[in-house]
Amino acid sequence: MKLKDWILERFPIDFQKFVEINERIFIKEPIPLHMKKWFYCMGATPLILFGFQLVTGILLTFYFVPSPEMAYESVRHITEDVRFGFWIRGIHRWGSNLMIIALLLHMTRVFFTRAYQKPREINWMIGVALFMLTLTFAFTGYSLTYNQLSYWATTVGTNMIREVPLVGEWLFLFLRGGEDVSANTLTRFYTIHIGFLPPILILLIALHILILRIQGVSEPEGYPKGHYSFYPHHFYKIIIATLFLLTLLTTLSVIYPPGLGEPANPAVTPPHIKPEWYFFPVYRFLKLVPLRVGIFSVALFLVGMTFWPFIEPWIAREKRRRIVLGYVVGSLVLISTLALTFWETVEM
């Protein structure tokens, strides 16, 4: 206990109180009974995956060089030469995909268990922001590999941003750092990917969890009331999930190692270009309608999703009708998203 005394002399806090607070906040955090079911307790999955993304992302910056001449070559070097490079990059690449899947599942679960209702509207909105930031993460990260597909995805993606009303042109020039996708674009995407987004995401995650903790986990109807403490049951669950995800990511990286593709060639657009799968619904939708209409609809959809906890009671006052509305709208969005994704997947 000498070390403890040494530290306490320099940080004279009430240790007993510290232990009590720690116990109350972490060890004995009351978890509602329904969360003993795996189905309800996977909100931490995106967080665990984000942790892996942070670690592997920092490791990737040790070798990655964000310049048109070196980006592709340095990704190749990481994947093919550096010891365990394919593994680190594999975890990062698969981790980003799994993180989006985990978020989609988490959001679907939250929506259909109506956990966004008053008083949890703000946390739903923060969640939507986290989802959109994660997609920005994925888009900027994808373009860094600088192969044909990622180069043209960057070109098309930034061109689409140009169509956004009012700020589009300005945002377009800001992101590209000029008229064309160039060295400026690459360094900007890199800075956004490793400098801007991580602290914002960490801050919002902290806020998301803080609000969750203050309000307590929402309890779906039809489950026995009661609580158990965070430690050990839920703590073990998180460790099991962490180990499972690490194993899954490693397995995926070994079976499907991250690819390189063709080096980017600004002079030739490849015949079949597609974004990553999570942009399929938007991509397919944009093929169906004029670009302006498409962009406007997507923006409207995002606004609607963000403010849904306020829109829903505004449309339907009565509780029963509100529940029906929620289920109908949720199901329609889910079905149309899956349908658009499927359509884009099967059609070359």
Partner: peptide
């Protein structure tokens, strides 16, 4: 009681750190 889990976590962490060191030092 959670020892097997702790052991698994420790093992995973050890392998992870070892691989990361190999990655960092060319």
């Amino acid at each position: 009681r959670g020892a097997p889990l702790g052991l698994a976590l420790f093992g995973a962490a050890a392998v992870f750190v070892r691989n990361v060191l190999a990655y960092l030092f060319p």
